[in-house]
Amino acid sequence: MAAVLFFIGGIGTIAGAIGVVTLRDPFLTVLSLVVHLLFLAVLFLLLRAEFLAAAQVVVYAGAVMVLYIFVVAYVGEEVTLGSDTRAPLGASLRLASTVFGALLLIELFIALLGTGLRGIDTKGSPYIPGFGTPGFIGNLLLTRFLLAFEIASFLLLIAAVGAVVLARRRGGIAEEAEEELVLAQRRRPLGTGTTAEAVSTLAFAAAHQRHDHGTVEAQPPPPVDGPGDPVDEEPSPTGGGW
């Protein structure tokens, strides 16, 4: 019975994985991964990790994948073609990837199965009742692995904050997609700038005179003919100091 379940679980897992790797439509890939996760949960159950199986289904398949679906919906169906890629040797990269992957797989097989890990041929330790139950996991989490627990929760907090920061819009409803972040035109505090700023001492001194340290929009630097830095000659187009 266990063998049958194992094979069902195993084949399902691998099928889902293959689906993720090969399907074109991103929505379908996400669904394929959900399938993969569910069958993986079956495997977990077979290994007596009940809590973990449940956590997997609820958290992973339930929450994370839903998040994925949302993003896929937002981003849209970008069907990327296989041929027009900027990477040189794009096609042969696929072949190379497959070869590397196969290489890795063979090595792992040899490592895991062929080297005679002690206990691989055994059935493992006897089953302790309560192994894998939530109580069992909770006990461990709050005693032996308390630090990891706390750090993990902290990590979740950071991730949440980070995600919000990454995805928020910046000032104004207007589309900022066209904003070109040209470094030379960013407003900087006086004295922390580029060589252009350092070389054109007249504007620097003038800004210092005005005690505003360049945070206010200053005049474009007057044409300096002394040290004659040719880079210096381009006036900033947006009128900002530097």
Binding site: A2, A3, F6, G10, T13, I14, A17, I18, V20, V21, H36, L43, L46, L47, L93, R94, A96, S97, T98, F100, G101, A102, L104, L105, L108, F109, L112, L113, G119, I120, D121, T122, K123, G124
Partner: peptide
């Protein structure tokens, strides 16, 4: 089922993931 089977499946999943990342 001895553990080798599970490890084999794990290796396959891992490799498939790696190939997917590369491809």
């Amino acid at each position: 089922m001895n553990i080798g089977w599970y490890l084999a499946v794990s290796a396959i999943i891992f490799t498939l993931g790696a190939v997917g990342v590369m491809t």
